[in-house]
Design a protein around this nucleic acid. Structure first.
Lengths: 385, 385
DNA sequence: CGGTCGCGGAGAAACGTATCTTCTGCGACC
DNA sequence: GGTCGCAGAAGATACGTTTCTCCGCGACCG
């Protein structure tokens, strides 16, 4: 009584400006309690269908929209997932600079929306106050650097974190990555079979997992087969440096007769450098580069590319994250029959669970010395950790 | 007293699971009131610097992070801006399908972060419950279709909406667009000067503003100069259809000797079609297309492109939106000296304020019959509504 | 015929913050 | 010598939900 009168009075006073209808207004208009409205709209409680539909109708008529902020405060869930992109260079983020990021983010957004979550784009470099001003249910981190303070803090404050790229030294709930070692070995083998005698590598100076693992795989292979490593490294975020490095690689006295480029633009850069030195592709130089761009299907000649299948990665990362989010929540009510059991321990012993996703080598003319037909190799089965 | 005892009791009971420190814990640890903590951390109230710094120190020590949800509920501001991308075709969104969107979104995200806001990506086609579950301070809509119900509802519920692309028939707070008519006329003039006698157009079947305005400008120009229109339209979201349309256009009996393509992939499609018909570019066929991609700098020959300068658009849209958000908020306290006065009426008479941004024609070999030097024309001054 | 069960629903306590209002000393001024 | 004003800080309320607890009541069973 007292509360109701108080609320009515307040509403009456406050309604000098027309405000959005709240749950109280719906309750009053439908002649039921607030509880009943909440239950009716959320499909909870035990109400006869008649009451439920009547309440829904009234809510619709009043144009009632539940306050997302209040719901988040009460339930502790915002339905928001952070998408963190590592910063290269000056720009706040190089999101979509490489096709990989663009595709991956697109798939991630799509997957999240399909499960009722939305993605908010948050560069790791952004101001701390922006981060802490947003209620996040979890975070996807692309390519976390070693000892990322951001990831560490997020993880410590209980926010699930799933990373694209095996994390170096920071705790995450789970991670997903390609089997970069297998991919590189596969390419080297492919080039060898096409007749390459000395395979060079165009790699990066950055310390991220992708660059490191790929380079190590290359060096290991060289040691194993007894080839002297021939490679050039450059800062991957600088497009101009890529062209220069490609040029350097082909200008060496021990010029390779096949090159694998780790980054998206390497294909065109290497092609241009080859032209400059009068090298014919694939006759004098075999070429493969890692790229998601389909421009390489139409270059002259078409270039063999390694696809990391970013769409699959993005989808997997998000699904893993949401599983963790909903699993953690399901953990407290002690197994009330949720769909997603807490497979991923947030705290405990041992390394976080990781998933390796297959890559796909799209073979084109640039890496085939004999029969330049365009073939797509079947995707390799996923490896296990 | 009563409240304090109650709260302490509650905390003691609830602290079986270690939870994040709240503002109460900071207050207790620092020996001050909640009010003082809030004021100290937010730089409000009148407190001696000593108290302020002491409170901050305690908060830091406890790892206190204000609850974003609670703050949003209390202040009514979430710091979140929705970024809506119109859906073409099957995919949830074709975000980053065209370089324009990618660049624009990138700039928008960057601009928002710079002013303390974060962007959340929300396709217009996404489920309604996702939309209403998020507290949005405002929304950026890319290319709203006529009578967009989403935009209408957002606007009605008081959320500022700024659109990229002049809105057809739905109310928005403000909008930003290129001067498409001027751009097309500029291109037609450019092609005429290069010797074109019959200029064709590759356009879309969609009804969005860009397609409509551009096509109308073309048709108007044709009528004015007395040329019979020569154009093909296709569903812009279908890449395969673009190639077919390009082919159709060059296969016509009244084949044009110059073509402007409205969409990003048209350049390569037209180039391929020209090759198929044995037409040399630019000798037999002049080519211009609208694109943000720099692949056209390296095609054979390089293709003249019209850039819509998406980065400028994205930045402008976001700044306009945030101005509106902060202006609206400043409107209620009756001019308390905010930085951003409410320049943009949310309700009132007349059309919403629009801003026209200049485009840039990047002239390359494909549209120059005489001197194939690569030149960049200076950006044209912005037009007014 | 009395107790219990289950249905339909109401009350009220949080969630954690910001802020409006109020309270208390204390020095200064008239 | 009394009060005015102000610094400094505490109290209390509201933001709008969700959800836990509880209550009345008719029916059913023993």
């Amino acid at each position: 009584m007292t509360a109701a009168a108080n609320q009515n009075g307040r509403r009456a006073i406050a309604s000098r400006r027309l405000e959005r209808a709240g749950i109280r207004d719906v309750a009053a208009a439908a002649g039921v309690s607030i509880t009943t409205v909440s239950d009716a709209l959320n499909g909870k409680g035990r109400l006869p269908d008649e009451t439920r539909s009547r309440v829904r109708e009234v809510a619709e008529r009043l144009g009632y929209r539940p306050s997302a902020a209040a719901r988040t405060l009460r339930t502790g869930r915002s339905g928001l997932i952070g998408l963190t992109v590592t910063t290269y260079g000056e720009e706040p983020f190089t999101f979509t600079e490489f096709a990989y990021f663009a595709e991956m983010a697109r798939a991630a957004t799509s997957a999240a929306l399909g499960r009722g979550y939305a993605l908010v784009v948050l560069p790791a470099s952004s101001r701390h106050d922006v981060w802490s001003n947003i209620a996040l249910d979890g975070t996807v981190v692309i390519d976390p650097p070693d000892q990322d303070p951001l990831v560490t803090e997020l993880y410590r404050s209980g926010v699930p974190v799933v990373s694209d790229g095996k994390p170096g030294n920071c705790p995450v709930t789970a991670w997903v990555d390609n089997d970069h070692e297998a991919a590189v070995l596969n390419i080297l083998e492919h080039l060898s079979e096409a007749g390459a005698r000395r395979i060079g590598l165009l790699t990066g100076t950055s310390t991220d997992t992708y660059t490191r693992l790929s380079t190590e795989a290359y060096l290991g292979w060289c040691a194993r087969v007894g080839q002297e490593p021939v490679y050039e490294a450059y800062p991957a975020h600088d497009p101009a440096a890529g062209a220069v490095a490609a040029d350097r690689l082909l200008a060496r006295p021990d010029r390779p007769d096949a090159v694998y480029g780790l980054f998206d633009p390497n294909g065109t850069d290497l092609l241009a450098a080859a032209r400059r030195y009068g090298l014919r592709v694939p006759d004098d130089l075999l070429l493969v580069c890692c790229s998601e761009s389909d421009v390489y299907a139409n270059t002259e000649p078409p270039i063999t590319t390694l696809s990391l299948k970013p769409r699959r990665i993005g989808t997997t990362v998000v699904n893993l994250l949401i599983d963790a989010i909903e699993g953690v929540e399901a953990g407290s009510p002690a197994g009330t029959g949720r769909l997603f059991p807490p497979r991923y321990r947030t705290a405990g012993t041992g390394p976080p669970p990781g998933t390796l996703m297959p890559t796909e080598l799209i073979v084109r003319a640039s890496s085939q010395r004999r029969s330049p037909r365009t073939t797509v190799s079947p995707p390799r089965p996923p490896g296990e950790v």
